[in-house]
Amino acid sequence: MSTLEIWVLSLIQGFTEFLPISSSAHLILPSQILGWNDQGLAFDVAVHLGTLLAVIIYFRKEVGTLLVAWFGSLGGTHNGESRLAWWIIVGTIPAGLFGLFAKDLIELYLRSAWVIAGTTIVFGLLLWWVDVKAKQVKDEYQLTLSNAIFIGMAQALALIPGTSRSGITMTAGLMLGLTRESAARFSFLLSIPVIIMSGGYTALGFLDEGVTVNWSELGYGAVLSFVAAYICITFFLKVISKMGMLPFVIYRLLLGAGLIAFLMW
């Protein structure tokens, strides 16, 4: 990989993982449009590790509190934090199952620029509609078991390129009456086990390949994606309540329209 490719792909992963604009779509596009070679499984693991560390470090206090509360719940002590921890686990299960049974089909049939263009537009419009119509009166501690399952089912759809994991989970959260900031926080916390599962699965594939890797490329990729992701999380949570989802919806519509124009040209 060239230095330019490392920088571009790492920053794309870091900045788009937690914004409602689809990181998978943006990582596929360079190869589709610029003709770049696939970055490989090892690099995928490295940049996902960077974004994982970013969200864990940013939410380190919440993660610690949730872990303690979850272990306490195993002994029968329940509170708001333990319930939220359980909802994160419950919300992760649909994506894990869907990924296990449908990943090969998605890789074979849905990793195309046409699919990305369609899902980018459709789910962008859905996000805009929900953001305008939702009541936005709850926080993440008011979620119920059925709410967690609903958001988890929505998260499973994010395996389709262009959907956006953060975008679809925030959309589902807003549908349930969460505020924008609460929907974003739950989405970010929900990303932790999903990124671990996805990265672990990818790492197994990388190890099975038994290929030689360039560790400096992986190191640069991990660091760059970490910095970009941390900045992104910080900025997004500070401005989302006032700014709303409209700027990201507009971006998705322009991206989708641009892709269609490019494909038809």
Rank of each mutant, 00 (worst) to 15 (best):
W87H: 15
R180P: 07
E181H: 07
L259W: 08
S82W: 03
K103S: 14
A228N: 09
Y220K: 12
G99C: 05
L143T: 11
A261W: 15
L34Y: 11
I21C: 06
V239P: 05
G72Y: 08
A228D: 06
F15N: 03
L27A: 11
S187H: 05
G80F: 00
L189K: 06
T202W: 00
F188P: 03
M1N: 13
A134V: 08
N79P: 03
M170D: 01
V211S: 08
G35R: 10
P94M: 10
P20R: 06
H48G: 06
E62S: 13
L52A: 04
T119W: 00
V68R: 12
W86F: 08
V194S: 10
M170L: 06
T171R: 08
S166T: 14
T144P: 13
I106E: 13
N79W: 04
I56E: 01
T119V: 01
Q136V: 08
H48R: 08
F188Q: 05
L253T: 03
T51A: 01
P247F: 05
E181V: 12
I196Y: 10
T144A: 14
L127C: 02
A156Y: 11
I89P: 14
M243R: 14
L74K: 06
L126E: 00
R185K: 14
S112W: 12
M264D: 07
C232H: 02
I233C: 09
G210M: 11
W36I: 05
H78C: 01
L204W: 10
S31L: 04
G50V: 07
D104Y: 10
T51C: 04
Y58I: 03
S112M: 07
A156D: 13
V90A: 13
L253W: 09
N214D: 15
D208E: 15
L254E: 01
E107T: 11
I56P: 04
Q13A: 07
F262S: 14
L29A: 10
D38S: 07
L97T: 06
Y109E: 09
D208H: 13
G167C: 09
W70A: 15
D38V: 00
R252A: 02
C232N: 04
G221V: 02
F101A: 07
H26Y: 04
M264I: 09
L105A: 11
F248W: 12
L224G: 06
I240W: 03
A158R: 11
I231R: 03
F206R: 00
L4S: 12
N214C: 02
S241F: 06
Q155H: 11
D131P: 15
I21R: 11
V68W: 09
S191Y: 03
D38F: 00
I56S: 03
M243W: 14
P193C: 05
L218H: 01
F43N: 04
R83W: 15
E62T: 14
Q142T: 04
I240D: 09
F262Y: 15
Y109S: 02
S166K: 08
S225R: 00
I149G: 02
L178A: 02
I192Q: 05
I121Y: 00
G64H: 01
L254S: 02
